[in-house]
């Protein structure tokens, strides 16, 4: 029975050949992907650094205390950003005041209370669409509704009109991120609450919301960061570009940093381009502070777990 044995040996040889490890080329592909991903990261960081360096190089020379505390002027060396800075702070505070209760409330309703029917699905689709509408459209809506129709209340082209317009712009973002934060909370947490005889509101207030706060905060700050840089809707609503006073109330005229920067960049004199760069540095610093606060708050609330 020699043939049997030899055929078995052949079998064994064939079995080994079912796999070709080919480790060399698999590791090569590994390396290629590593460098490709590294390259993608590098290019985006490089662009960002280049942007920052040119802005700082242009703007640092004219950035001083006088620039921050002065009102706009026809002469670049006297011009300052205080009106726009305070205007932006006003607008941001008002936008936060309007969007946090409305957006978070709507998010809670849609995620925790609303039943799944045609109405809520319609609302959901529309909110998703609204998040993608160009900001100039919101500006025109704000002009028509807040600045014109509601003029007796808002005072026309005022801080209040601008803030309401920007609130409309970021409400969908706040609602969507609130819902996502709530959806990330495991259902077992809700069941634990219900099983102890809690009502729906007790479950949401005591367990779901505290657990979702970091996520909700992140969404709100990201939305506010978008609002702080918006120029088009504010121009449409009619924020002024040359203002030599600080807003005194909700119905006061105002300007905001992106508008001031846009205005300076558009001037023919080169000096104004330098102070525009200074303005951008101030705007970015403010953005950085906002994001820093967001990160701090998020870590603070997560520690309580």
């Amino acid at each position: 029975m020699k043939t049997d044995v030899s055929s078995r040996v052949v079998d064994k040889g064939q079995k080994q050949s079912h796999f070709t490890a080919n480790l060399g080329s698999r590791y090569t592909i590994d390396r290629i992907f590593k460098y490709a991903a590294w390259g993608a990261t590098g290019v985006s960081i490089l662009i960002l650094v280049w942007l920052l360096v040119t802005i700082v190089a242009d703007g640092i020379g004219t950035l001083n205390w006088n620039f921050i505390t002065s009102f706009p002027s026809r002469r670049a060396e006297n011009a300052g950003i205080i009106a726009a800075l305070v205007g932006t702070v006003w607008v941001m505070c008002l936008v936060a005041l309007f969007t946090v209760p409305l957006g978070v409330g709507a998010g809670i309703f849609l995620e925790e209370f609303a039943e799944d029917n045609w109405f809520t699905r319609l609302v959901e689709i529309n909110i998703g669409n609204l998040a993608g509408v160009p900001s100039i459209i919101y500006g025109l809506l704000g002009l028509a509704v807040f600045a014109r129709i509601m003029q007796p209340i808002t005072g026309g082209r005022s801080v209040l009109s601008g803030s309401l317009t920007l609130s409309l712009l970021i409400l969908p973002v706040v609602i969507v991120s609130t819902r996502e934060a709530l959806r990330a909370i495991p259902n077992s947490l809700r069941l634990a609450g219900y099983a102890l005889g809690a009502t729906r509101w007790q479950v949401i207030w005591s367990h779901v919301l505290p657990a979702a706060v970091p996520g909700i905060l992140t969404g709100v700050i990201l939305a506010l960061s978008r609002a702080i840089g918006e120029t088009a809707p504010l121009i449409a609503v009619g924020a002024a570009v040359f203002i030599s006073f600080l807003p005194e109330g909700l119905q006061s005229q105002f300007t905001a940093m992106p508008i001031q920067i846009y205005n300076w960049v558009g001037r023919p004199q080169e000096e104004f381009h330098y102070i525009a760069a200074s303005g951008i540095i101030v705007l970015m610093a403010m953005l950085l502070v906002m994001n820093g606060v967001a990160v701090y708050l998020r870590n603070h609330f997560q520690k309580d777990f």
């Binding site: 947490l189 634990a192 102890l196 005889g197 777990f305």
Partner: peptide, 19 residues
Amino acid sequence: VELRRRVGMVFQKPNPFPK
């Protein structure tokens, strides 16, 4: 809600509150 006070429940996966 009143019933669940009198009939307690323990789940498959331990789910203590994050408190």
